[in-house]
Amino acid sequence: MSAPLLKIDGIHKRFGGLHALNDVALSINAGEIYGLIGPNGAGKTTLFNVLTGLYQPDEGSFSFNGKDLFRQKPYVVVESGIARTFQNIRLFANMTALENVMVGQHVRTAAGVFGAVFRGPKAKAEEAAIAARAQELLDYVGIGKRHDELARNLSYGDQRRLEIARALATRPTLLALDEPAAGMNPKETDQLKALMEKIRADGVTILLIEHDVKLMMGLCDRIAVLDYGKKIAEGIPEKVKNDPRVIEAYLGVAPE
């Protein structure tokens, strides 16, 4: 077996007295859809923020694609190939859908002040490529026609899609999605599932937080379960589903 794409070990994160992440270890292999579940407040989003550089962990190790990302700045993390979406959608509300995705390409492009002002052939070509690629990604997630709409005016489901398109614009190796199906109806959830499978098929590894257990079971290759900041189970969906500790965490009682 080849080395995992992402590997964290012994990660601790404390907020004052709260031990939000307690000795968490996990590894994600290239090409898989890896699910992260757990009751509310279990530390899923905290772990996400650690993995995407928004939080600096207190202890532990974090390597990705052969690179040490422990306590790295977000832009280094993104540059290394991890992109994310947010649980409570965080788009650039007063920019158009297209511009949102253009911003996503920031880290893969180079034009600075001089390029902007003099707009030489190189800068011009880059700018055109950014716009073209942005449109391509909007088409890819299925909202290509809404490119000129302000992000704030998109429907809820389209905003979720736009966030995914924006994240894809950073050309990630690992796409981390924080509850992408939250608030969606069954039809939208199905479409989302298809989109995630398409993204995976195009070679992007996916890390997914989701409450919709049914969706997770049908979609994920492996699942980890967090409870009170600790990983209490990990494995294929079938195994995790029947793990007594997982049932206890969710139902609050040990099974008979």
């Binding site: 928004l54 993390v77 992109a83 920019m95 920031h106 950073t170």
Partner: peptide, 12 residues
């Protein structure tokens, strides 16, 4: 518009 999101998009 959103500094945290900008951060997460790899903007320094």
């Amino acid at each position: 518009e959103d500094e945290i999101a900008a951060n997460a998009m790899g903007i320094n």
